[in-house]
Design a protein around this nucleic acid. Sequence first.
DNA 1: AAATTAATCAACCGCCCAGTT
DNA 2: GAACTGGGCGGTTGATTAATT
Length: 255
Amino acid sequence: MKTVDEEVRKGPWTEQEDILLINFVHLFGDRRWDSIAKVSGLNRTGKSCRLRWVNYLHPGLKRGKLTPQEEKLVLELHSKWGNRWSRIARKLPGRTDNEIKNYWRTHMRKKAQEKKRAISPSISSSNYCSSSSNVTVMNSFPVQDSGEASFYDTGGLDKLDLGGKNIEVVKEGEKGYSMDDIWKDIDLSEKSNITPIYGSYSEESCNFSYPSVASPSWEYCSDTLWRLDGEESKLFLPGDESFPSYEDARAFLTG
DNA sequence: AAATTAATCAACCGCCCAGTT
DNA sequence: GAACTGGGCGGTTGATTAATT
């Protein structure tokens, strides 16, 4: 009887795991993550697989810094929706909620810090603003959800620069700002600076459709052939005698 | 060149919701 | 209709890299 720790891997994904996941997602689609995790032999949770796919492996993802237009759009949409990152991400094709969240956190914290320096040091963050001026989350904002599409679009898997290292948990000192602090600091200033950019932005531009099974990332990895060590798991590829047939795997997934 | 600090980003956790049984 | 399950989301952490001292 294995323990949970032995069964489920955590931490950075290895290149082998990535390729394995890509293969099985292309086989079965990006649903049923728990089943994919099981049938693939990855000792990962379904959640972990989904996250890896959505945030890193999906062929439609862009890489690199946000463009000024994207930054503007993030500001605009955040002012409308607050921390609805996934929602905001749907309006930025190729960007993930995680990416936008990270961007916001990094840049807004920087802004907040600069602002604090600019303001008299006698004003502390604790009395800078009251709890009533909290995050501008407005779920009731009227938005045409019907037009929202996934960021998924066609494209290539540009690279797989992967770490694949074990992690050691090391406790560290305090980071500084909490998210609340950041929101409080930026709330007033940002609202006044936002300029609508919908003049140059159209819903159509985000009308992407999820690509079907075949995609560049499949071609990217389909010519690789390797196995993980020992009994743990192995890469299944079409043509390999141990590659599970579509019917077999489908039967597994659908029960 | 080494040490320290800041910035970036991948990944996990816990909660919630929708679909299924 | 209640219980269960899987998937999605937002918040947070921690490792790595870059910049600065």
